[in-house]
Design a protein around this nucleic acid. Structure first.
Lengths: 251, 251
DNA sequence: TTCTCATGGTGCTATAGTAGCATCACCATG
DNA sequence: CATGGTGATGCTACTATAGCACCATGAGAA
């Protein structure tokens, strides 16, 4: 299986920039103007205007009354096609259903640039379908899923990813992430404690990782044997991850 | 809300072609070579080779051992982002769950070129999550969802769509579709009888339609009051569609 | 075994498409 | 009213791209 990175002869810059504009617009989840998008991505605004206009012409974007761009009707087609091609959500959902018997939030997410985007985020207080597409992107370096995925990447590549661009991580942030990545590699799962009552653990799916599966909102304050509890939960995650991998990759 | 079609000054042809290549590769659901893709889309193969190489470089495609291209790891990101942006599946699933009490197959699909691509296809013999991404594309002119969506389109645009390219509809096929479209406009739902034991009805979602919701595999042989039954089912579909539209568009 | 044909991929270079500057119309704010 | 920001376009220099020619490889047929 081939990882991304190697450029062909004559890579097509318009396509690279166009897809970046599309994904950034989707990520923002609000109408966004071409100059803002251009500043955001460090692209010249005229070019962005043409790319967004082109995306609008093919239906993936649409213009709002105030001439900003948001996702257009073609996004539903893209969702249908990519969802079926990916198969990740379809494979993972049955295991997510069983994991929800822990009475914890379960999350399935992927890493896009410096954020985790969620395919699923829900618990058994709601029906399974309410968890689909239910969570907004979250900073990867603060996320257990993000940390798990980054920990599975080549170290220098992960470093480069988090340190490039205007939204690069600060020194402190990078040090925090590095510690968590080291722990993740040692433990086989990542752990982020947002506050004493809210801890998240995650396991990466795939090698190289394509996604992460997490238990979220774990309240350790109520748990006597914290280590044993975390060990059990991470074991369940790893088990589910192995099954998902088998379903996806047939290994 | 803006529909697609109007080209900006300087539309970007590389982006248009690149996304077409991406979507066609995904649609094929198998590794595909650049020359085949070029013939398929009537594009020069060198350009396709560069576009596919570029898509591979950004992770949306990957090369197989025999140098063909299939979806790459970036597809999961695209799925997560487009699923959340689209919101269609998330909005529709609760209503799909209730519709499944008819003990019929329920389908949610979108129109891509001349095919319907499915977000959902399942019944209550399986869990809801087994229906996600569960069905392959199907020829739109033979599909009730396709017919419903086409019936909601401007007539000349639908005509042009189905009559262009090497896979254009035959005269007979076009006549059949036109009859069904006329019936759909009159009835408010589309109906396709695949065989006496298998009828599908569908209602378009949105105006202009972004998708269609269907009951499939209806066995009319067992039904005394066929007209009443279809009227009731289509009423349930329309009801669900209105609710989905309200959730999606706030109308 | 050899030959033929189809494949994916690249170099080269002409050129068409694109990038970016300048400009415009419009809107919001002070 | 002036100012500044916006999205969009025209123009044109220029460069990224398109397409031809070629290569290496593999599969199938004779």
């Amino acid at each position: 299986m081939r990882t991304k990175g190697l450029l062909p002869a004559q890579p097509n810059q318009s396509l690279i920039k166009g897809i970046l504009c599309l994904q950034t617009m989707i990520f923002e989840a609000r109408p966004i103007g071409t100059r803002e998008l251009g500043r955001r991505l460090n692209l010249e605004h005229t070019g962005v205007n043409r790319l967004m206009g082109t995306l609008a012409a093919i239906g993936l974007a649409e213009k709002t009354a105030d001439c900003k761009y948001q996702a257009g009707p073609g996004i539903h087609i893209l969702a249908a096609q990519s969802l079926q091609s990916s198969r990740l959500l379809a494979c993972a959902l049955p295991y997510i259903r069983t994991l929800m018997d822990e009475n914890l939030l379960v999350s399935l997410g992927v890493l896009w640039r410096k954020h985790v985007c969620y395919l699923f985020h829900g618990d058994n207080r709601n029906t399974l379908e309410n968890g689909i597409g239910a969570s907004k992107p979250f900073l990867a370096f603060k996320s257990s899923i993000g940390t798990a995925i980054l920990a599975s990447m080549d170290r220098s590549m992960a470093q480069r990813l988090m340190l490039q661009g205007p939204d690069r991580l600060s020194k402190d942030e990078m040090n925090l992430l590095n510690r968590r990545v080291n722990d993740t590699i040692r433990n086989g799962y990542s752990m982020v404690t947002h506050n004493p009552a809210s801890t998240t653990i995650a396991v990466a799916i795939g090698k190289p990782a394509i996604a992460g599966l997490a238990f979220a909102n774990i309240n350790l304050l109520k748990i006597k044997d914290k280590r044993g509890y975390i060990k059990r939960l991470s074991g369940r995650l790893s088990d589910a991850v192995h099954r998902i991998e088998t379903d996806l990759f047939g290994t």
